[in-house]
C-alpha cells in the first residue's frame, strides 16, 4: 500500500515559538489517521502546515508521492481539502450556500456546476432547500455539513479534519461523524483527523498519534488504545480523563 501523506522531521516556528518540534508520520492511502492532544500540542499546526497555512521551517511533507515545496499549486488543492473546527467562522457571512459551493468550481473551471452543487448538497443530507440560504440561517450542524460539501465538491482524495465536531452538540456530533464515515467509505477517502477527544479518534480512526507540546508521544492503533496497551504515561492520563470524573 502506498502512502497518502508522509511527514518527516517537521518543524514549525511562529515568532521563535516552536509549535512543532520535528514530527514525523505516515498516513497510508485510504486510511483514517488521528492526531490526539491537548491545546498547544501542535496537532492543528500539523494540519495547517500540510495545507500551507503554517510556515514550515524544516522537514518535508510528501502528498501522494509528490514532495511539497513552499507554495501549493491548484492541483494540490484538488487532492487535499480541509474542514475547520468552528462552523460559525468557516462560512463567509455574506454568501449563500450556493455561492460558497460555486466558488471552488469556478476556481478550478468545472463546467457542470449546477449538477455538482445539487449532488454535493444531497450527499451531505441537506437537499435543495438549503441552496440559497445564508450561513446565519443555518444551525451549527447544518453549517458543518455545508463545509463538508464544500470540501468534497472538488473530489479530493485526502480530507483534513480539524476538530470538526468540537463546536457541536453531542447529538449533532453523532450525525456529523456518521456523515464523515459514510462519505469516506463511499469515496474511499484518506482522513487525517485532529481531536482532543480520544473517544472520537478511536471511533473514527484506525491509527493515531498522541501529541504533546509539539512532539509525538506515541503512535498506536485504535485496538491498542481500546485494550489499554499503551506505553506513555501521558496517553494513560488522557485515557483516564476520557472516562469522566472519579471521586478520590
Amino acid at each position: 500500500m502506498t502512502a497518502a501523506i508522509v511527514v518527516e522531521g517537521l518543524e514549525v516556528v511562529f515568532d521563535r515559538f516552536r509549535a512543532l518540534k520535528g514530527v514525523s508520520l505516515e498516513v497510508r492511502e485510504g486510511e483514517s489517521y488521528g492526531l490526539v492532544g491537548e491545546s498547544g500540542s501542535g496537532k492543528s499546526t500539523l494540519l495547517r502546515a500540510i495545507t500551507g497555512l503554517a510556515p514550515v521551517s524544516s522537514g518535508t511533507i510528501t502528498v501522494n508521492g509528490k514532495r511539497l515545496g513552499k507554495s501549493r499549486d491548484r492541483a494540490f488543492y484538488r487532492e487535499v481539502q480541509m474542514v475547520f473546527q468552528d462552523p460559525y467562522g468557516s462560512l463567509h457571512p455574506r454568501q449563500t450556500v450556493d455561492r460558497l459551493l460555486q466558488e471552488p468550481l469556478a476556481i478550478h473551471g468545472f463546467a457542470d456546476g449546477e449538477r455538482r452543487i445539487e449532488r454535493a448538497l444531497d450527499e451531505v443530507g441537506l437537499g435543495k432547500g438549503f441552496r440559497f440560504r445564508y450561513a446565519h440561517q443555518l444551525s451549527g450542524g447544518q453549517r458543518q455539513r455545508v463545509a463538508i460539501a464544500r470540501a468534497l465538491i472538488l473530489e479530493p482524495s485526502i480530507l483534513l479534519l480539524d476538530e470538526p465536531t468540537s463546536a457541536l452538540d453531542a447529538s449533532v456530533q453523532a450525525e456529523v461523524l456518521n456523515l464523515l464515515e459514510e462519505v469516506r467509505r463511499r469515496r474511499k477517502l484518506t482522513f487525517l483527523m485532529v481531536s482532543h477527544d480520544l473517544a472520537i479518534i478511536t471511533h473514527m480512526c484506525e491509527r493515531l498519534m498522541v501529541m504533546q507540546n509539539g512532539e509525538a508521544v506515541e503512535t498506536l492503533t485504535a485496538s491498542q488504545l481500546i485494550g489499554h496497551r499503551v506505553d506513555a504515561d501521558y496517553t494513560r492520563n488522557l485515557l483516564r480523563a476520557s472516562e469522566g470524573f472519579v471521586r478520590a
Partner: peptide, 22 residues
Amino acid sequence: NSDYIKAVQLMGASPFRIVLRH
C-alpha cells in the same frame, strides 16, 4: 485571518480573487 478566508485560500483561489470577491 478568519477561517472563511482561509477556506477560500484552500480552494486554490488567487490573492486577487480573494480580495476582489471575498
